[in-house]
């Protein structure tokens, strides 16, 4: 009897999930190929007029650039914007301006890796300053959000999932939080030196 109940519950849940997922997908009108310029069509990115956010009847919707048009040639990822943004900069696909006030401004890139060791059963978190300082200033994170001193900023995954600390960007603009192992990338058994010596290195 119990097993039967559980089965019914599971089938109902799966059905609901499927219905919830397929509903909005079917409502969106698929635009003609000429509307969206991309070699593999409009599949990866929704066009402006069908993204559920822009008003397709408004005058602006047809004037704005579609994501597919700009993003299809960048290194691809599975989540977020479907773009590996850091690789796009490093490999020269894009060259975003570092400043609008000073035409000679160079980004202050810092090549310093930080390992956060207290991650429970997950692999440890490797934070590469270099990838972040190619986009951001020191002052965007320090000292108000993260202290420079080792171990001075205490936060957990719960804070990040609620949009604090790393979650200010990751989960909103930078790659989303479904990519656990982008951050949790250092397995304990792979380390040859004791963890305490490795909290900051390079």
């Amino acid at each position: 009897m119990k097993r039967r109940l559980v089965e019914i519950l599971l089938v109902a849940c799966t059905g609901l999930m499927l219905a919830a997922c397929s509903g909005p997908m079917q409502e969106q009108t698929v635009p003609a190929a000429s509307d969206v310029f991309a070699p593999d069509g409009p599949g990866r990115w929704l066009p402006i007029i069908a993204d559920g956010l822009h008003d397709p009847t408004g005058p602006g919707a047809k004037q704005l650039q579609n994501p597919a048009e700009a993003l299809f040639y960048l290194p691809s990822a599975f989540s977020g914007n479907k773009v590996r943004w850091v690789e796009a900069i490093e490999e020269g696909y894009i060259e975003p301006r570092p400043s609008i006030l000073d035409s000679n401004y160079k980004m202050q890139v810092l090549d310093l890796d930080v390992i956060r060791t207290r991650t429970g059963e997950m692999p440890m978190v490797l934070f590469p300053h270099r990838k972040h300082t190619e986009w951001l200033d020191c002052g965007n994170c320090h000292e108000w959000l993260f202290k420079s001193k080792r171990g001075a900023t205490r936060f957990g995954m719960f804070d990040v999932l609620s949009g604090e600390y790393c979650g200010r960007c990751h989960g909103a603009v930078a790659f989303p939080l479904v990519e656990c192992f982008y951050c949790h990338s250092v397995r304990r058994k792979d380390l040859k030196t004791p963890v305490t010596e490795l909290e900051m290195h390079k």
Binding site: A70, R97, G139
Partner: peptide, 19 residues
């Protein structure tokens, strides 16, 4: 509607979030 993807192709984060 502010599209981050459109702006980050052209400007680094610091332009808007610092300058």
């Amino acid at each position: 509607i502010f599209p981050h993807w459109f702006h980050r192709i052209r400007f680094r984060c610091r332009v808007c979030h610092t300058e």
